Computed example of a mutant assay.
Amino acid sequence: MNLEEIRKQIDSTDKALTALIEQRMALVLQVAEYKKASGKAVFDPSREQIVLDKIAAYVENPDYTQTIVSTYKDIMAHSREFQVAYLKK
């Protein structure tokens, strides 16, 4: 496979990931609404660790585990920022 073909596959994967991340953010919004209604804190470190442990277990190639878990840490950090901004409305 040449570089152009690989990049087309990356573009396709990025499109699919974007749709899934957008779906996840819609769910994060629902979580923020629940937290707002119930007075719960945005940051729940024990819940985040559970999620990260699950993510690590989903990874099939162990060479990718650290990178994928780090990516999810970033996703969750941005999700928290989104929730905080939403709760300030």
Rank of each mutant, 00 (worst) to 15 (best):
M1T: 10
N2D: 15
E4S: 13
E5F: 10
E5Y: 12
K8D: 13
Q9N: 13
I10A: 15
I10V: 15
D11E: 13
D11T: 14
S12M: 12
S12E: 14
S12N: 14
T13M: 12
T13L: 13
T13R: 12
T13K: 11
T13D: 06
D14R: 13
D14P: 08
K15Q: 11
K15A: 09
A16I: 11
A16P: 09
L17A: 04
L17G: 00
L17N: 07
T18F: 10
T18Y: 09
T18S: 09
A19E: 06
A19Y: 09
L20I: 03
L20N: 04
E22Y: 06
E22M: 04
E22R: 10
Q23M: 07
R24E: 02
R24N: 08
A26M: 14
A26S: 14
A26Q: 15
A26H: 11
L29S: 10
V31G: 05
V31D: 10
V31I: 15
A32T: 02
A32Q: 03
E33A: 11
Y34P: 02
K35C: 03
A37G: 12
A37H: 05
S38G: 02
S38V: 04
S38E: 12
S38Q: 14
G39Q: 08
G39E: 06
K40W: 04
A41G: 07
A41S: 09
A41N: 08
V42G: 01
F43N: 04
D44Q: 11
D44C: 05
R47S: 13
R47L: 15
E48L: 08
E48H: 12
I50D: 15
I50R: 15
V51I: 15
L52V: 12
D53K: 14
K54M: 14
K54T: 13
I55S: 08
I55N: 05
I55C: 07
A56D: 05
A57F: 08
A57K: 13
Y58H: 07
Y58N: 03
Y58C: 06
E60G: 00
N61Y: 01
N61E: 06
P62Y: 01
P62S: 06
D63Q: 07
D63N: 04
D63M: 03
D63T: 00
Y64I: 00
Y64V: 00
T65E: 07
I68M: 07
I68A: 05
I68H: 05
I68W: 11
V69G: 02
T71V: 02
T71W: 13
T71G: 14
T71L: 12
Y72T: 00
Y72D: 00
K73I: 02
K73E: 09
D74R: 10
I75N: 08
I75K: 03
M76I: 11
A77S: 09
A77G: 04
H78N: 09
H78Q: 10
S79M: 03
R80Q: 03
R80V: 01
E81P: 00
E81Q: 05
E81I: 01
F82W: 02
F82C: 01
F82N: 02
V84R: 05
V84N: 02
A85Q: 10
A85H: 08
Y86W: 11
K88A: 06
K89R: 10
K89I: 02
K89Q: 09
K89H: 07
K89A: 02
